[in-house]
Design a protein around this nucleic acid. Structure first.
Lengths: 363, 363
DNA sequence: AAGGTTTACGTTAACGTTAAAAGCATGAGT
DNA sequence: ACTCATGCTTTTAACGTTAACGTAAACCTT
């Protein structure tokens, strides 16, 4: 039943009415969207199926399947014909059907730490995401993001998981109990990728010694962070070997790493004349940036008067810094290998990824 | 045929042999892994199926399906019985079968920009990832990471896409041609979420004026970045309305935002006595951190002598800064709504997310 | 040359789910 | 008593793919 009625109104009322109609439309749309909540998906491009391809080629679907999957039991000529035809009509095998029949899922869960606080201001992690995404796709795997809040969904949706930002004692026992394959970074427990950070700084310290540096200061931040600790350890080992005096300084990363480093250095430059150090080994590139700027502003020449080194070699900071390069693609590759190994039944193990000294202008 | 032979060797040879065996084992393992490359997936936990559940309940699979999906045509008692039994045996419906039968995929592609350069050092994006992940999961959608390098795979694997870090002129025409639903951020073209940044700074400027500030400096960075431009626009509008003098200063973000801001402010503090400004409006929180630190070091009191404001309200920086809060969960929600609307046939539109002034200690 | 083995293909049954169709009681209307 | 509708349940047919199985023909073996 339709309401049919003419309403007279003046222009003011008309405007009111129009905006009212707009409002009602909005409400209705939201209502529709609200109730269609289980139907948010889209038709997957209903592409050409294996049946149509088989029809066009005049063969059975089995032959097509064999041709496409490189399975034996088909003549080379037919295989070639099917493959070229498949190219021609741009056939894309249905991912869901494949998964259903095989009972396998290519989904790898990428689990983000509960609070992105620590996470978000380490650009290193974003680069790692990028590298993992590229590498997983190349392997035919699908990287799906998970927040720790819905970690229980990981089991039913993924085949394995990469835990970013997990700590040694904060690993999910659920995964262990269910024998669910997963990899952590920098924990060294279970299947884990660790970076030989200590060794990197160790090599770096020796490198500086060879360049004639004798009074090296290690500048770290928030020493409770495990990575900073490893880097300090490498410095200490080298310093002890070389019979030099150990100098350690720690700034807070509460605010901004480079600013903290800058102010700390400025204080040192002003308080102690002559300046007692000939090299500053920074726990990361951001600190190094601050140190170099401070040296410049205080009238010291880098690297002539003072060598400055960083760690990470992230593109934003380190175009001129002598630093330790982290091979992020290799780290991603190692993580995926560890998953594969576990899926193939091998026991979890630790892969150590090597770092590389990159000599640039600052040291 | 087994080789059976006793070999005598001395301990040195024995050690050599053992490490050789280890080496060979390693090579073999790598070979296995290499050739099994197409089989990286895992058996999806072969959980209980709808059939077993139906058997246990003594009913048909159709009734179970109806009960689980809240469809009508089933008695309340049976529905309750099936649901409780399903809980009991922890039945998880098979995602792949569901997708296959429905022809729909819940996959939403999250596309990362080609170079994470600009991307990685904006913590804001990481928070957005987190928010998007949470919200998509709540909606039953699956966030899958894609690099721009394999953007062509998006079509066959996802139902829609969220493009992070896309610019106005750098949007993929492929998506438009294929009528593939997608959302961009901050471009304002097609389906897009924009933040009323200009308005945020506009309100902030008025707020400072009400507090008695008359000489306000806007401190931006790399003005070519679109966000900085919008923020500057808001400042200009308010300043003109208030009949005040416009003051604009731009620092390079090449190095570190807060350090650049710190040095710039120090220069200003030292060069001009008395200091001409009573408020610094920073384009983001990082800059504000540097400004506040500089003021403190130069002996100025914040906010008594100098008001300092930021933008973004990211947890790391802004615990004490008066700033403009970006409602990241709301931005995520808006993006997903825009996708849903397009999937439901509505035309793409722009949603503007409002910002909010958060008054804290610095102004 | 008779038998077995390999090769190349076709047929068909899964995989777990949903939805349409069909069955089947029960009750009401004629 | 017969039809018809109704509410609940089962049966069955899809969805697109893979793999096990069948069936010929061709290719060896003795």
């Amino acid at each position: 039943m339709l309401l049919k009625k003419t309403i007279w109104m003046n222009s003011h009322e008309g405007f009111l009415c129009l905006s009212l109609v707009g409002l009602i439309c909005d409400i209705l749309k939201n209502l529709i969207l609200y109730f269609k909540k289980s139907d948010h998906y889209c038709m997957s491009n209903k592409s050409v199926t294996i049946h149509e391809l088989a029809n066009l080629a005049g063969v059975s679907i089995a032959s097509v399947s064999r041709a496409l999957n490189g399975k034996p039991g088909i003549s080379d000529t037919l295989r070639a014909r099917i493959l070229s035809l498949s190219e021609e009509i741009n056939y894309q095998p249905n991912v869901m059907a494949r998964q259903l029949i095989s009972g396998k899922t290519p989904v790898v869960a990428l689990c983000m730490p509960p609070s992105p606080y620590e996470f978000s201001d380490r650009p290193y992690f974003v680069h790692l995401y990028q590298a993992l995404t590229l590498y997983l796709h190349r392997k035919g795997l699908v990287p799906v993001l998970f927040a720790y809040e819905n970690i229980d969904q990981v089991f039913s949706q993924a085949s394995s998981a990469i835990l970013l930002g997990a700590t040694e004692d904060d690993r999910p026992e659920i995964f262990d109990r269910q024998k669910f394959p997963y990899v952590t970074l920098e924990t060294g427990v279970g299947a884990s990728v660790v970076i030989d950070e200590a060794n990197g700084v160790y090599k770096l310290t020796h490198y500086l010694f060879k360049k004639g540096r004798k009074n090296m200061l290690f500048l770290g931040e928030n020493i409770d962070i495990s990575t900073s600790q490893g880097r300090l350890r490498g410095y200490r080992k080298a310093i002890n070997e070389l019979g030099l005096q150990e100098h350690f300084n720690n700034v807070s990363r509460q605010i901004s790493s480079s600013l903290s480093a800058y102010r700390q250095m400025m204080k040192l430059f002003q308080s102690s004349e002559p300046f007692p150090y000939d090299a500053i080994i920074c726990a990361n590139d951001e600190l190094a940036v601050g140190v170099i700027q401070a040296a410049e502003d205080a009238g010291y020449k880098v690297p002539e008067d003072l060598s400055v080194t960083g760690f990470d070699d992230l593109p934003r900071f380190s175009n001129k810094i002598t630093t330790i390069h982290q091979d992020i693609p290799k780290i991603a590759e190692a993580a995926v290998s560890l998953l594969s190994e576990q899926l193939d039944g091998f026991p979890p193990r630790v892969i150590e990824v090597m770092t590389r000294l990159v000599s640039r202008e600052s040291a």
